[in-house]
Write a protein that binds this DNA or RNA. Structure first.
Length: 272
DNA sequence: TGATATGTTATCTT
DNA sequence: CAAGATAACATATC
């Protein structure tokens, strides 16, 4: 599922592929997923593709932006040559020189047209970007303080930290040797430091490998190629296998309704 | 066939 | 009221 590294990979690809091109036509096959009037952006030129949290922001020459959220199963596929839609295609954005297909099996994702004010409002509620200066140990101490919910559910809270999803939350907690069920307010300063470093490490790795395209995942890059981070998973979906560090059997539980993977020996409930 | 998975948000509960 | 928990959304897969 597209999280920060996957969206970042798509962003970098599209920036090279479609910047400077003009929107010629927009074909909407699922109105719910493109609720605005496409006429607002026909003729506009694409200036820049950006990312905030798991949102892709396509800045246009008419001061508006196309904001894309891929949710669980979204794909943005860039095709230079004529190509027909697939079953999950919901929107086709035709540019001069190719077509951008928005495919999304589950129909949760969307594309919105926002002006500058609306965009600022939409993005204001997200917590700091992990790769920004605001993502400091001091910030995390404040953000985790007074919260008795499990640390893993906090990592997934986009208002606390932007862009982390289930894969990278599991990976970062394993890397930091923190039990996912531990209350956020019980983390020590040392643990918070380790967690901050671990988050940056696993996100960087994810980007390096072009994101994670595991078997049951829909994520692929705009050129239809797969990312390879799934080959480097430490803990995600490793339940029943031996921990790569200590050979204990990796456990799987459900936290906040999400699959949660951890090593009972490397990430014990209580410190020893 | 029905449970499960998944990110986000709406809604319910405590 | 706020924090936390859960349902809802859609659909393929197991």
């Amino acid at each position: 599922m597209p999280e920060l590294p996957e969206v970042e990979t798509i962003k970098r690809y599209l920036n090279k592929a479609i910047s400077g091109k003009r929107i010629v036509n927009i074909e909407i096959l699922s109105k719910k997923q493109f609720p605005d009037n496409p006429k607002e952006v026909i003729g506009a030129k694409i200036l820049l593709v950006k990312r905030r949290a798991k949102n892709l922001i396509i800045n246009l020459s008419n001061k508006k932006a196309l904001v894309v959220h891929l949710k669980l199963s979204g794909q943005l596929i860039w095709e230079r040559k004529a190509k027909i839609p697939v079953k999950s295609t919901r929107v086709i954005i035709s540019l001069n020189g190719g077509k951008l297909f928005f495919n999304e099996m589950r129909k949760f994702g969307w594309i919105k047209i926002l002006n500058q004010n609306q965009l600022d409002l939409e993005l204001a509620r997200f917590g700091p970007e992990p790769f920004s200066r605001d993502f400091s140990i001091e910030y995390l101490q404040k953000a985790f303080g007074g919260i008795s919910r499990p640390i893993k559910t906090i990592l997934l809270d986009q208002e606390k930290i932007a862009g982390i999803g289930n894969i990278y939350a599991n990976e970062a907690l394993f890397e930091a040797k923190i039990n996912p069920q531990k209350s956020a307010n019980k983390l020590t300063t040392i643990e918070i430091g380790k967690l901050q470093k671990a988050i940056l490490l696993v996100l960087k790795e994810g980007i390096k490998y072009g994101g994670a395209s595991a078997a049951d995942q829909m994520y692929i890059r705009p050129d239809s190629s797969h990312g390879s981070y799934q080959q480097h998973f430490r803990i995600y979906q490793k339940d029943g296998e031996k921990c790569r560090k200590c050979k204990a059997i990796v456990k799987r539980i459900s936290l906040g309704g999400r699959g949660t993977f951890f090593c009972p020996r490397c990430q014990p409930r209580r410190q020893r």
